[in-house]
Computed example of a mutant assay.
Amino acid sequence: MKRIAIIGSGGAGKSTMARKLGQALNREVTHLDALFWKPNWVGVPRQEQMIVQNELVKREDWIIDGNYGGTLDIRLNAADTIIFLDFPRLLCLYRAIKRSIRYRNKTRPDMGPGCKEKIDLPFLKWIWEYPNTRRPEIMSKLQQLSGEKKVVILKSPGEAKRFLNSLGKNKE
């Protein structure tokens, strides 16, 4: 695992997984949210996102977390390992709400400067609809890529924890 893409619904724990994986593998982590949200939640244009990501994936090794469906193929095609956090929508909603309370009026460590934590109905709706709107397309892509890449689908926090724990055992 040298080039790792971590994807999943909002609230699934992509940034946490990336951070823990980075620690386990002693690898730099890139949080796309930190790159693609400017102060006061101003989004970076897709063309700029593509340029940045094309540069990021040229590195020898990397861990990148984030969705950004319009540029997802850049990461999936360049990755040798794809981790999909396929957690239940209620858990993702709960975590997103919990995160918004925890970081209320603050900027999360994995977010761009000047983007104070917020939660709104469109984001909650996106999380709720993710299993029906985004997941089928992602599963199709992962199935197509599974012959040439390591695809890890984790369905619960327990599975994620066991996966991370297994990395320490493999290093010995």
Rank of each mutant, 00 (worst) to 15 (best):
G8F: 00
R89C: 05
G147W: 05
K14G: 09
K125C: 12
Q144P: 02
N40G: 07
P113G: 10
S146F: 06
N165S: 13
R27A: 12
A18C: 13
R46M: 04
L85I: 11
I74W: 12
Q23R: 08
H31D: 05
R3Y: 11
K116H: 11
S100E: 01
M139W: 07
V151N: 06
Q23N: 13
L167N: 03
P39C: 05
A34P: 09
N67M: 06
H31L: 09
D73C: 14
S146A: 12
P88T: 04
A78S: 15
V57F: 13
K150Q: 14
R59Y: 15
I82Y: 07
V52M: 13
E148L: 11
W128D: 06
D61P: 03
V42A: 11
I4P: 00
I4C: 02
I127M: 05
S156I: 13
Y94E: 05
P113R: 03
K20D: 10
L35C: 13
D65N: 10
A5I: 11
P131Y: 03
A18T: 03
M17V: 10
H31N: 04
K38H: 13
E129Y: 07
S140F: 04
D73M: 14
H31Q: 08
R162A: 14
R46N: 04
L76N: 12
V52P: 01
E117A: 03
A24N: 14
G8H: 05
M111H: 04
G10S: 10
M111S: 05
E48P: 10
E60Q: 15
I6Q: 00
M50G: 12
F163S: 06
Q143G: 03
E129L: 11
N40F: 02
I4F: 00
W62E: 02
M17Y: 01
I138G: 06
A5C: 15
G112A: 02
R102T: 12
G8T: 00
R99V: 05
K14M: 10
L21S: 06
W126F: 15
K38L: 14
I97M: 08
